[in-house]
Design a protein around this nucleic acid. Structure first.
Lengths: 191, 191, 191, 191
DNA sequence: TAATAAACGAGACGGTACGTCTAGTCTTCCG
DNA sequence: CGGAAGACTAGACGTACCGTCTCGTTTATTA
């Protein structure tokens, strides 16, 4: 169904706006990104931006959303460690790319902007967590993970180290980080 | 012996400046915090701020540093799980307090300000990590932790979930989070 | 026919800006006059001032221009002494009024600001000198003034004393100064 | 009598201060001249400047005073036109030199600073006018100038054109301007 | 010769204004 | 009649100087 990218349509220059916002976010950072700068680069009136987005953070988020790979179905091979490792490896390699920089900056901006934080969680984190939670629940059902731990606790143990690396260390990941994290964490949740 | 307040001197109104910066950071967030606002509240010329600090982020960081408890020696009771739990519980209760909000906002600002990120890591993260690393190393020596894992990997597994909770979830911690995290993580590193 | 207030348009609050600038120039002098003060009084953003004027001196000059009487045609009665006296008397009475103070201050500022000096000469001095020069030339043609003297030399002799009084003496004029100056000067240029 | 340059002595670096002030006045103009700039160039504390002078204008005036030739006695040859022409020629050649620029700028500053205007008149204008007035009075006594005109009126007629040229025209003088002015003016005052 | 006081350099301080930049709103005018 | 263009009020930015105010340090008497 050839529907719009999002309800409420959008400006004619939507893609060029998001491209410009994304590029400037990577080049200069989110707080050097300005509505004026985007408007000037795209050749669009500022009003057009404000008509469709409430803040530069939201524009950057939209730009990021379109660039984040969205394999909606979590892999299932029967081996939860293998499945989680596969998915986390994909996440890690994205975090090591420009997309990771953009995500890091938007997550930072979200610390000062509740509306942005909401959308960030709802649109980016939520679906991915849901997808993973489903896989964890299934692993619990299959007896691969101890039922004494809530799936969200397991998720936090799994992905917490990634955010620590991204936001606190601000260093790239080691090649086998995903694998080592998953095996270490899941070992501690074996029944 | 009439020594200075701190090595390297500083402005006459240092404490009042840090107080104001800290309070405004909590009230309005770091990007609503302004040099002009601080100067006006304290009754100080802007030049005095710029003479001693390069940016509002650095002021906020100094304010935070003075407010973060700094128990320099890591507890040692023989039981590494107990010791780490004790220390992490203290950290968690700080993260749940206003100090945690300030830290969260400064860490966010550090994503766009490399100099701030440097000082953040060097002065806040570094010493605490070093202290914890010492304790981990000792536990490895005593055979409580498998030597196959680097201490920094263990540290990342232990504290990653805290940053995830703070920055991504933005929700308070559960009462026994520290204990559950530590026991879960350390179990996976048992020799 | 809905023409603009003046060619080249201008800010919406032009008149209120010039009023404020003029009043503050008289009250406090040109170097106590500030862009911020004008903006604050008028309730206008500073950018609006800088968008339309390059400096406070230019604003003050515009304000003065609008307040200087501009009888464009020099009187002609056949008697050059009478005509010049009539016109100079008008000038003198203006110089004795607040307009004279403003002019004195702007002329002073023009000593340090070449662009201001240019406009001052081009818009204020130039047209008036041209008008007077025409009258002098006619008087030369009619044999009332010796052709051996250039009109600009005559003009300098006529109006020099006024500036001396205004800028060096800084004292008001005597009631018949214009008449005495004109008669004295023109006597020396009789053929 | 080996007295000081002026009562109340002065700062140790007086000459270097005046040199710096004079040079900077010529280079950048009086309102780009700053106390800080002088202090920095001379290597003197700001307090030393404020201890001895109330404003930068006063420093510049002192510097100018020391550089203005001060032939205290007006020439007397019996021919008033020749004497005045001789003296005015000297003035004109000074006004065409850097000293003239400095004087022009200080006179401009005096328009906004009554104290400076006072000293300017008292120390620079006053003595020279007194000296000239004496010569005029003598010429009146000798029947070379009509007694119907006050000496100060004559003086204003003589020197007014110079200030007009300096401040309004801001152009150099013609070589024989002094001679032409004097002859023209004195002709009009012949008995 | 020692003390004492003044002038000094240095520069921090509370301020004001600068000229620029961006935010977010409002208006004009063109396609 | 929707959007580009951009003027508008507002206010923070970081800098430059203002004039005042300590700080030690010379420098020059005066005791």
């Amino acid at each position: 169904m050839g529907q719009d990218k999002r309800s409420g349509a959008g400006p004619r220059s939507r893609d060029r706006i998001l491209d410009a916002a994304y590029r400037q976010t990577l080049e200069k950072g989110l707080d050097k990104l300005t509505m004026e700068g985007i408007a000037a680069e795209v050749g669009v009136g500022k009003q057009t931006l404000y008509r469709w987005w409430p803040s530069k953070g939201m524009i950057a988020l939209d730009a990021l959303v379109e660039r984040l790979s969205s394999s909606q179905t979590f892999p299932y091979s029967g081996d939860v460690a293998a499945d989680v490792t596969r998915q986390m490896s994909a996440v890690v390699s994205q975090l090591d790319s420009p997309v990771g920089t953009a995500l890091r900056r938007i997550l930072a901006a979200a610390q000062e902007d509740p509306a942005l934080a909401d959308r960030f969680r709802r649109e980016l984190i939520g679906p991915r967590v849901d997808s993973l939670r489903g896989r964890i629940v299934r692993a619990v059902d299959e007896g691969q993970i101890d039922a004494a731990y809530s799936p969200d606790f397991v998720i936090r143990q799994l992905y917490g180290p990634l955010y620590y690396q991204l936001l606190v260390r601000q260093e790239p990941f080691a090649p086998d980080d995903a694998e080592r994290i998953v095996s270490s964490v899941l070992r501690s949740f074996r029944p």
